[in-house]
Structure formats: structure tokens, C-alpha cells
């Protein structure tokens, strides 16, 4: 039976509301975009529709940040490798935890979940990372994030909804743990894995706090990521001729709003480019007659 393409009233209202909310979400992005091409004075007055007093000042300023190119490379590297590692590790762990034969299943599951709630602060974490030699090392970006409880929970819940018959029939055929994982679980879990890919990739792209703590001094070399450089630039970009008096305390160095907006746009744009490619995995139904198949 074909679904008719006729537009019903509830359908129309649905589309209208979605349209409204989409506008609410899209306009701020446009606002950021046009403001990043306007002069600070115009921004202060209010720029709402198109750039006023067009200037490339903010972007040329960004382009002059020292170490920019290598940081972009590092950010891409950590996003790609980190995402792959996290998806593989977290999904495999989730699969193991979902297996009904796992002994002490509840305990082991909780072993992972509790990690979400326990955090002793950054000093002990810093000391641990330092002790295992991950300081000034690229791996500090991706190893700690490889096994994440939140993703394990999501994937495990998803796996448990896969009909058990599929796994059992594979076992009858003599498939081992790894083969079932690779050939059955992974392909069927594409929607949730796509979710995880998006979440992890965005996280890796945006994180700078690990850079700040663990990449120190001259041995950090070229290991800084883009976000950290932008964050530093945000703190420091001010005309230095006015001899800022220290009596003013911290946080005196602030950058103009246009610069912040340009930075934001540069950060968000790559995400939006890659995003649609992941979309098809969680907008199309795949479980069609899976049991029979």
C-alpha cells in the first residue's frame, strides 16, 4: 500500500511548527555569519540582515594566528582517529556486556557506569596521565575517550533490541564472538553507531581542555589543536598600546565580538559540512523483515 502524498491538516501544522523552530535555530547562525563580516562598531549598533561596514578584519586576524595550519591538521587527526577508536571500543564493550552469557553481568555493567559519576578533579587526573607518559603525546587526545560509559549504555540498549534469533542462528553456524560482532551486530547497529560517530566527532573537534593541561611548554611542539589556539587567541587579542594596568585583575584581555563570531563560524562550518553524510544512517529504516531474512 503506497502512502499518499496528500497533505493533511495535522501534517501541515506539523510542517509549520517545524519550520518555525528551524528558523529559530537557523537565524542565530546567520546572525553570527553576517556579524563576523561586519565592523565592531556596526555590530554594536546592531547587524541583523546583511553585513554592515563589510570587513574581513576578523578572518584575516584569525588567519594570522601562529601555528594555525598544524593545529588544523591535529584537530582533523584527533577527530578521525578518536572517532574510529571510540566507536570501535565502546561498541565492542557494549556488545560483550549485552551477551547473556557474561558472568557477573550486572557487576561488570555497573563497573563501567559508575565511571560517569566519579571524578576526583583535574589534579589527580593530571598526575595519572603524567605517570603513564601521555603528557605531550598525541594519544592523550584519544585514549582516555575511547571507552565511554554513556555510549556503552546507548549501544547496549540498542543491541538488546536486536532479535535474539539472528545471533543464535549465527552461533549455530559456528560463528565466534568476534565474527558475530563484526558481521551481525555492527551492520545492524548502524543508526546508533551513526549517532555515536556524530557525538564523538563533535566532541573531539571541540575539546581544548586536554590540550591546555597536557600539552605544556616546548615539548608540546606541534600538538596543539585548533580549538585551543582559538581559545587562547580569544583571551589575548587586544591592542596592547594602552598599557593595561594590572590593578584591574584577571580577565582584562577580551576580544571583540566579531572575532569571537568569526571563530565560532570557523569551528561550526566543518561540522555542518560532514554532518549530512551521517544523517542517512539515522533517517532511514533498515529493519525490514529482519527476522525472516
Amino acid at each position: 500500500m503506497e502512502s499518499k502524498k496528500r497533505l493533511t491538516v495535522p501534517g501541515a501544522i506539523n510542517i509549520l511548527i517545524l519550520l518555525l523552530f528551524t528558523f529559530l535555530c537557523l537565524y542565530p547562525m546567520w546572525y553570527i555569519f553576517i556579524n563576523s563580516w561586519s565592523s565592531p562598531a556596526a555590530v554594536n549598533r546592531g547587524v541583523y540582515f546583511i553585513p554592515l561596514e563589510f570587513t574581513t578584519e576578523a578572518y584575516t586576524n584569525l588567519g594570522q594566528i601562529p601555528g594555525l595550519t598544524s593545529s588544523i591538521f591535529i584537530s582533523f587527526a584527533r577527530t578521525i582517529s578518536g572517532t574510529i577508536l571510540t566507536v570501535l571500543c565502546s561498541s565492542f564493550t557494549a556488545y560483550l556486556l549485552a551477551d547473556k552469557f557474561l558472568p557477573a553481568k550486572k557487576f561488570l555493567y555497573r563497573f563501567f557506569i559508575v565511571t560517569m559519576y566519579v571524578n576526583a578533579g583535574f589534579i589527580p587526573y593530571y598526575l595519572t596521565i603524567s605517570a603513564i607518559g601521555l603528557r605531550n603525546n598525541f594519544l592523550v587526545y584519544i585514549l582516555p575517550a575511547a571507552v565511554q560509559a554513556y555510549f556503552i549504555i546507548l549501544i547496549k540498549t540498542y543491541i538488546e533490541s536486536i532479535p535474539g534469533e539472528m545471533v543464535e542462528s549465527a552461533e549455530m553456524d559456528g560463528a565466534g564472538i568476534f565474527r558475530i560482532y563484526a558481521q551481525i551486530i555492527m551492520p545492524l547497529s548502524k543508526p546508533i553507531l551513526a549517532c555515536i560517530v556524530v557525538f564523538t566527532a563533535v566532541n573531539q573537534w571541540n575539546t581544548w581542555s586536554d590540550d591546555m593541561f597536557f600539552m605544556q611548554g616546548r615539548n608540546a611542539g606541534n600538538l596543539h589543536c585548533l580549538q585551543y589556539l582559538l581559545y587562547q587567541n580569544l583571551q589575548s587579542n587586544v591592542v596592547t598600546s594602552v598599557g593595561a594596568g594590572a590593578a584591574a585583575g584577571a580577565a582584562m584581555k577580551v576580544s571583540s565580538m566579531t572575532l569571537r563570531m568569526a571563530m565560532s563560524f570557523v569551528t561550526i562550518f566543518p561540522i555542518l559540512c560532514v554532518y549530512p553524510f551521517m544523517q542517512r544512517y539515522f533517517t532511514k529504516g533498515i529493519m525490514l523483515g529482519a527476522v525472516k531474512g
Partner: peptide, 18 residues
Amino acid sequence: TALTEADWPTQLAALMAG
């Protein structure tokens, strides 16, 4: 290394500890 005043206290604490 140019320090950022807002973050330096936490960085300093970590460096001291380590």
C-alpha cells in the same frame, strides 16, 4: 609561553603537583 591569566592558576596547580 604566553600565559592566559584566567587558566594559569589551574595549570600552575597541576604543574606544581606533577
